[in-house]
Design a protein around this nucleic acid. Structure first.
Lengths: 260, 260
DNA sequence: CGGGCGTTTGAATCAAATCAATTGGAGTGG
DNA sequence: CCACTCCAATTGATTTGATTCAAACGCCCG
């Protein structure tokens, strides 16, 4: 567990000062943010979806419920919880502004998961049949729908990749990176994020126990990749998102770079 | 691994039903098989897809390649391999007759994975734009497409569930169960299956090492849940698929039922 | 026949789970 | 305001399941 001296071989701990105020990614994020806004605007214009305010803990839809609607998060955060018939439950996805929910119900005619709000927010409700009807003659709507489904498939595979190939520390780092990146793409600040999940939930999402999550976070903090913001350990400050990505990379690569 | 806490001690211990020669599942499988055949027939009738013969090891599409086509397996087996920029690679999906491939490319405009044939088979190639055009005015075609994407999303989540909540032994058992079930749904015999993957590949798919796969198989064989067919350890005989499912269930549940 | 690969199995090691104790903040009620 | 509980989180000690390292076997094929 305790290995090589830290200080020397830690090129990633750069001074907290932002290197350059405008990075290449910033433009990409601006575009992504705009794209999400455009999507929402188009939906609103063509379908005038029903709006629904949700609060932390509210179920947007539930496993077993008859499929009929798709949902889009206009604000807030949500988690997707997969339920096995035997009682196992697992957080299989996190949703942010502009994300779609409910695709899993199309094939079976009933939802296979619960979608649970993690914060106060607004959900737009679309009747699936109306959406399909609206898609006829509006190719951009269909394109949008397919892209959302495609993104979900690609994202799920990345999750699988993460749990199958990364160590616990790297998985937690990757989780934080993913969360921060998701915020960045929506034009939100990423230097300080508020996790809306307990350690137990994070662990459930990442396939590890809550103690392991806690230890991993402590190690990341010890190595300056993150730091906790004053009272409570829910708010996390990330000086450099790139440093987290770099850490994940190194943990995969040959080297023996380990957290102290 | 982690204990995806069973929410309560729900006694789901269903009795091991006496194996009647004609099970309820048989009818479901016949229907599923018919549905796959219908799908293929419809596609052929409306789009006359290009047919392509592939052999084990052939790439159906490759990561990075510009997206433009969707692929449907008419016969044979294929695996989907996700590639991370850092070189990690992971089998994230298995495909059987009637399965679609290439959805992951829609959003990004380029495929994110390799699709690799594991056997000689036939792939149908559809131009995505033609498919979309054909969907206008043929709702059943669009329905079919969406159901395929939905199924993939649901399946990916089940995979995640498997790697996150099951022990190595249970994961291997669940893998065999899934493979057998996939064959059953296509009207193929399931009592004896030929794995088209090495232990290393299985391990990669399940997030464990090849040695662990080998040990798990040995334990399953020792407990009569499977047995190897004469020469070579590629062919596996599964006396009762339900027994594998039951084993997975038990390994999740409280009890201390463990393989010898 | 011999080489190469895939597989099996054993022994040692290690990362993460489990068990257990403690802290600390948030909320409640006297 | 403090005493109290409750629950999330941290941290340490220990156990355990899986990986790693290593050796040997069996099958296929030139």
């Amino acid at each position: 567990m305790l290995s090589a001296r830290p200080q020397s071989d830690r090129p990633h701990v750069r001074p907290v000062v932002a290197p350059s105020p405008v990075r290449a990614d910033d433009e990409a994020n601006r575009l992504a943010s705009q794209s999400i806004a455009d999507t929402l605007a188009l939906l609103q214009a063509t379908l005038t979806p029903q709006r629904r305010i949700v609060h932390a803990g509210d179920r947007i839809y539930q496993s077993g419920e008859r499929f009929g609607h798709l949902y889009i998060l206009n604000s807030g955060f949500a988690k997707i919880v997969n339920l096995a018939p035997d009682g196992r439950e697992l957080v299989v996805g996190l949703k942010f502004r502009g994300d779609w929910m409910g695709f899993d119900g199309i094939a079976a005619g009933a939802y296979a998961c619960d979608a649970v709000a993690m914060d106060t927010g607004e959900v737009w409700v679309l009747r699936y049949d109306q959406l399909l009807a609206a898609c006829i003659g509006r190719p951009e709507l269909l394109k949008m729908l397919h892209e959302a489904m495609s993104r979900e498939i690609a994202r799920d595979r990345d999750s699988l990749m993460s749990v199958c190939t990364l160590s616990a520390d790297a998985r937690v780092a990757d989780f934080l990176r993913y969360w921060a990146e998701s915020l960045a793409r929506r034009g939100l600040r990423t230097d300080q994020i508020t996790l809306r999940m307990t350690r137990a939930e994070i662990g459930n999402y990442l396939g590890m126990t809550l103690e392991t999550v806690s230890r991993a976070l402590s190690r990341l903090a010890r190595n300056q990749l993150i730091c906790f913001v004053e009272k409570g350990r829910r708010d996390i400050h990330i000086p450099e998102v790139e440093a987290l990505a770099a850490f994940v990379q190194r943990s995969v690569a040959p080297a023996d770079v380990v957290l102290q």
